[in-house]
Simulated scan of single mutants.
Amino acid sequence: MPDASSTVPVPPLPPLAAQAERLIELGVHELARLSADDLRAFAESAGRGTDDALLAVHPDRVPASALAPLLRRDGKPGFVVVDMPDVDRFAPSAVEPPDAPLYLVTGVDRGDRMANWSPEEALPALTEEDRTPLLLTEGIHWVLQQPAVLERNRCFMTIGSRLRKANGTLDARTPAIWISNGTGRDGRERRDAPKVGWCWWGNRHTWLGFASATGRTSQVS
């Protein structure tokens, strides 16, 4: 397993006011049944004394399937892999986002040092460090606000979202965000596009870290 020396710093997030404008530009506020003023007011209040936090919309308001096509890389829109039609059923697992339409995610990290770990190995390590894995929607929000966090060979999993099956067990698939190679069912036209897909719970991938945060809050000053 790689150590912390393999971690590469990622660009900081824009100020919260700029993040709000980005979501408004993309029409996310309308998908969330919020006004542009709602988004701006939250960002203004939450931004007082807050540095490098991510503005997120609760997944119950805007699911991953609606956010993924808003991603862009080299002019190409993001997409969800065809064998993940149930992407929106991947709900928070062992993670409790605030009960509010808008909230902040603090201390976001791409988890490069955990590249080539399996989700099964990464989750207890993050828990021991008092870090919380990102939800899939939070990961998409992060890339929407700072596209440079998604780069070849340094992409990430969002294991805070899991699918619970009818029998109560967790599906072995775990969601991730990476860059398409344009192979297989992705199609050549999607090469280099941002891609929402999945990997097995017990498998390792050298190019996938584990995105996490220090916390979440909907409280504003």
Rank of each mutant, 00 (worst) to 15 (best):
D51G: 12
R173E: 12
V95R: 05
L163D: 05
D52S: 11
R173W: 10
R152C: 12
A122K: 03
P12R: 10
H141W: 06
M84I: 01
V57R: 13
N153E: 12
V143C: 14
R204M: 12
R110V: 13
R72Y: 01
A193T: 04
E121F: 03
F90E: 09
D3G: 15
G182V: 02
D60N: 04
R216F: 13
G139T: 07
G168F: 05
P9I: 06
A94Q: 12
P12F: 07
G202S: 11
N181W: 03
S212A: 15
G184T: 08
T132K: 10
A100E: 04
V57G: 01
D109P: 07
E129Q: 14
T132M: 07
A176E: 09
T50F: 03
T50A: 11
L34S: 05
R131S: 03
S161N: 15
T214Y: 08
A66V: 05
V95K: 02
P85E: 05
G49R: 03
L70P: 00
G139M: 10
L150A: 09
A46T: 03
L23W: 11
R173N: 15
S45H: 14
A193P: 05
C199M: 11
P147E: 08
R89S: 06
P85W: 04
G139A: 06
W142R: 15
F42A: 12
V57T: 13
A4C: 13
K165F: 01
A125P: 01
L134Q: 01
G187V: 02
F210V: 10
C199I: 08
D52A: 02
E129C: 01
A18R: 13
T50G: 04
Q19A: 00
T106Y: 09
L150W: 06
T137C: 05
A53D: 13
P147S: 14
P92H: 08
A94D: 13
N203T: 08
G49C: 15
P15K: 15
E25F: 06
L144Q: 04
V62N: 01
P59R: 07
N167S: 09
T127P: 07
E138V: 00
L170S: 10
V81E: 15
L54G: 08
G182T: 00
L26S: 04
R72T: 13
P194I: 06
V220R: 10
E120N: 10
P11A: 00
L126C: 15
S161C: 12
P85H: 14
P147V: 06
R191W: 07
N167D: 15
S5C: 11
P85G: 05
L67I: 01
D99L: 02
A18E: 15
L26C: 05
S212I: 04
A53V: 06
A100M: 05
M1P: 11
R185T: 08
A176Q: 13
R173H: 09
P85F: 00
A32R: 12
L34Q: 08
W201I: 07
G209E: 09
R191H: 10
A122I: 00
W200Q: 10
G215I: 04
A17F: 06
A46V: 03
V57D: 02
C199S: 14
E151R: 09
E96P: 05
A100Y: 00
N203Q: 04
A43C: 07
M84A: 12
D52F: 07
